[in-house]
Design a protein around this nucleic acid. Structure first.
Lengths: 339, 339
DNA sequence: TTGTAGGCGTTATCAT
DNA sequence: ATGATAACGCCTACAA
C-alpha cells in the first residue's frame, strides 16, 4: 500500500499537520523539523494523493480537454500547446476524444463533472442541424459551472471564453487574393455547412466576391463536408464535366487534399491550369515541393492560448468574456495563379 | 456549490447510505425508494465526486497516458485507439506530453503517482545514451507499482507488458523485397540509433543483406535520427556526390519525407531512378498519388491493444508479462523497383 | 512552532 | 430494507 501523510508523520516523529505544512509551504515550521521531514519524504518517495488533497481543499488542479478527433493533426498540435502551458503551471489534463459523436460528447461531459475539474477546454461536436441538441449542450455546460474555453468551434450566443480561427476573414482574404490575381470564374469547395466554421468560411468567400462585383456562379460552388473523400468526389465530378473554374478556394486541409487527389489523377496542375488557394497549411506538401498557397493558423499557439485563457479566468473569475481570434498568416507559393 | 450525496439524501428523505446503494447498485434497496432517489438524482443533475469515491474505495478508474510527441500523427492515432477502449470501459484518461524531454518525463511520472491512477500507458523518451537515466526510470516505474503497458518504445529487460512494432522484422522484410527485386547496391537512411527501435530496424536491414550475401557498403549507409531534416540533409549529400545506391530503405515516416524532399529537388524519381521502400505508411502520399512502397503498422489498433492489455492486467494481476508485437502490413506500390 | 480535531464526499461495516 | 458510524488521505482552524 502506498504511504500516507500519517506514515511520514510517524517516521519523522511529528504530527501530520506539520507534514502538511511543509508539503504546502504554509504556516510556520522550524527549519530543522522541516529538513527532517523533507528528508523522510524524499527517502520514502512519498507523493501526496491529489484526490485527497482536492477533496480537502475543495479545489482540483485538473483541466478537462474534450476534442472531437484525436487523430486529426490539427488537434494533435493543439493538444501539444495545451499540454505545454498546463505543464508549466502544474495542471493535470484529463483527456477525452468524442470522435465527433454526440453520445460520446455527453458521456465525456458527465465524466468531466464527476472528476470535478477546475476548468475545461472544449471543442463541441457541434452538428447542430438540430437545435435541441445545442440547447441541451448549453444547459449542460451551464450546469457544469466551471471556467470553460471553447476551442475552434463555437456555440451560438456563447457565454464562455473562446479561441477561434478567423474563419470568415481568412476565407475572405483568400478569395480576395484570387480576385486580385485577375481570376473571374472563381469557385469554392465548401466545408460542412452544418458547422458554423463551415458557414463562416463560405460567407467569407461569398462576401469577397460580392464586394468586388464578381458573380458567384452556382455551378462553381461545390458543397463539401471537410472530408478528403467528399472533396475528391466533387472535384472529380467537375473535372469530368470539363467545366473548371479559373480559381478555386478550398475550406480546410482535407478539402485541399481531396481536390489535389482529383487534379492529380487528371494531370491538372495547380498554379498553371487552375489557381488554387486553401485554408490550412499542409506541412507534407511543403516537404514534397508541392506549392499550394494558403491562409493558415498557428495551431500549437491556439492550444497555448486556450490554456492561458483558462488560467486568467481562474485568476479573475469575473473578468469579461474573452473571445480570442487567432490571426491567420498568408502563405503564397504560386498556386494562386493560373498561367 | 455542487450537490453532495448528503443533499440528495435529504431531498429524498433517506440516509446517504441508501443513496450510495442506489448509486452503486449494491445491497438491498426497496424498489420504491430506489425510484424516488433516482428521480431526485436526475432532477438535480447530481454526479458523485470521483475523487471522494476513489478515496473511499481506495481505487480509481483513471489511466495515465504519457507520450513523447502529441503532434506526431502516429501518437495521435494511438491516442484515438486508447481513448476508444477507455471510453467503452468507463475509464478516465490523464494525459501527458513529454515533448521527448527527460525532465518533463520525470514530472509527468510524479504527477501520475499523485493522481493515483489505476494503470499507465507509457512511451518513454528513451534516449538512453546514458545508462543511469534508464536505471532511474526503471526504479521510478517500479516504485509506481501499478499495471503498466509500454508502448512503441521499450525498456531494456522490461518487467512490464508492452505493445511494440515489429521493428527488426519489418526492416528485414522491406530489405528482402529490395533484394528480391534484384537490386545490388542497397542503402539505408537509419533512424536514431540511440533508440532501440532505431537500432532494431537497422539490424533488420543489415541481417537481411547478410543472409542474402549482399555486401553492406558503408558509403550507402546514411545515419539519420528519425527527423525529416536530417534525412533531407544526408539525402541531399549523396545526391550531390552523385553516388546513389540502387535501392534505399528509410526508417520511418519522417525519414521517408526527408528523402523525398531531396529526391524531388533533384528530379530523381522513386520507382524509376531509384528504388525506395519505407517504414510507415504516409496517408498523404497516397492521396497525392505518390506511390511509395512501405511496411506499415495499424497505429490505432496499437492504442486499442495497449488499453486492452491494461484491462486484462487489472482482471488478472498475476498473469504472465505480455509482449505484444503488432504485425506489419506490406504495401507495395511500385517504388520498390528501379527501371 | 507544533499538535488536536473536524471536515471534504464517498463507501463499507455494522446494527437495527 | 435502512441508518449510524467509521474510515479513506489530506487540509485547516484553533488550541497549546
Amino acid at each position: 500500500m502506498r504511504l500516507t501523510i500519517n506514515d511520514i508523520a510517524k517516521k519523522a516523529n511529528v504530527s501530520k499537520s506539520t507534514v502538511s505544512r511543509v508539503l504546502n509551504n504554509s504556516g510556520y515550521v522550524n527549519k530543522e523539523t522541516r529538513e527532517k521531514i523533507e528528508k523522510v519524504i524524499k527517502e520514502n518517495a512519498y507523493y501526496p494523493s491529489a484526490q485527497a488533497r482536492s477533496l480537502s481543499k475543495r479545489e482540483s488542479n485538473t483541466i478537462g480537454v474534450i476534442i472531437p478527433e484525436a487523430d486529426n493533426s490539427f488537434f494533435g498540435e493543439v493538444l501539444r500547446g495545451i499540454s505545454e502551458i498546463a505543464d508549466e503551471n502544474g495542471m493535470t489534463l484529463i483527456f477525452c476524444d468524442t470522435n465527433n459523436n454526440v453520445i460520446k460528447e455527453k458521456r465525456a461531459l458527465d465524466m468531466i463533472i464527476m472528476q470535478r475539474v477546475k476548468g475545461l477546454i472544449f471543442t463541441p461536436v457541434n452538428d447542430h442541424s438540430n437545435d435541441e441538441v445545442e440547447q441541451k449542450l448549453k444547459q449542460k455546460l451551464r450546469a457544469l459551472n466551471i471556467p470553460t474555453v471553447l476551442l475552434d468551434r463555437g456555440i451560438e450566443n456563447s457565454e464562455w471564453d473562446g479561441v477561434f480561427f478567423e474563419n470568415y476573414k481568412s476565407a475572405y482574404k483568400a478569395t480576395e487574393i484570387l480576385i486580385n490575381e485577375g481570376h473571374k470564374k472563381i469557385g469554392v469547395i465548401t466545408g460542412d455547412l452544418n458547422l458554423k466554421i463551415g458557414r463562416d468560411r463560405y460567407r467569407g468567400f461569398l462576401d469577397a466576391l460580392k464586394d468586388y462585383n464578381i458573380p458567384a456562379l452556382k455551378k462553381y460552388i461545390y458543397i463539401g463536408n471537410f472530408s478528403v473523400e467528399k472533396a475528391y468526389q466533387v472535384s472529380k465530378q467537375f473535372l469530368e464535366d470539363n467545366d473548371l473554374p479559373d480559381a478555386l478556394l478550398t475550406s480546410n486541409n482535407r478539402t485541399t487534399l481531396g481536390l489535389l487527389k482529383a487534379l492529380n489523377e487528371k494531370n491538372v496542375l495547380p498554379g498553371k491550369d487552375i489557381a488554387v488557394i486553401g485554408i490550412d497549411n499542409i506541412e507534407v506538401l511543403d516537404i514534397l515541393g508541392y506549392k499550394i498557397s494558403c491562409v493558415a493558423r498557428d495551431t500549437v499557439e491556439m492550444g497555448r492560448l486556450a490554456m492561458r485563457l483558462l488560467l486568467e479566468r481562474f485568476e479573475n473569475p469575473k473578468k469579461e468574456r474573452e473571445n480570442c481570434i487567432m490571426p491567420f498568416k498568408i502563405n503564397l507559393k504560386g498556386s494562386e495563379k493560373k498561367l
